[in-house]
């Protein structure tokens, strides 16, 4: 069970959240070819290690934010608001 530090509400139990998958994806422009679109729509990083992902505090402030989490140890390194980069 994860304890997720929502940047707006503080640490809360995982069951209050929904995971939105890999963060910082960039939507391709209208000229992009099918391969680019496929990458954007269907391909996600799947690292055995550090991953940046979006979470939604569904049963709390109902805001989206980013989390940097280790997919093997489940350690959460940092959480930061949408539109920001993680602390180095």
């Amino acid at each position: 069970m994860l304890l997720i530090p929502c940047p707006h509400c503080g640490e809360r139990n995982e069951i209050e959240f929904a995971c939105g998958g890999q963060a910082h994806l960039e939507r391709p422009g209208p000229q992009a070819d099918a391969t680019r679109w496929a990458r954007y729509l269907y391909y996600r990083a799947n690292p055995n290690g550090t991953q940046r992902e979006r979470w939604f505090h569904a049963a709390g402030c109902r805001r989206w934010f980013n989390v940097e989490r280790d997919t093997a140890s489940h350690e959460i390194r940092t959480a930061y608001p949408m539109g920001e980069a993680p602390a180095p």
Binding site: M1, E14, I15, C19, G21, Q51, T71, A72, H74
Partner: peptide, 13 residues
């Protein structure tokens, strides 16, 4: 579980 994980256990809930 709803998030990517390589830890071979799942969440209790």
């Amino acid at each position: 579980d709803s998030y990517v994980s390589y830890a071979q256990r799942g969440s209790a809930h």
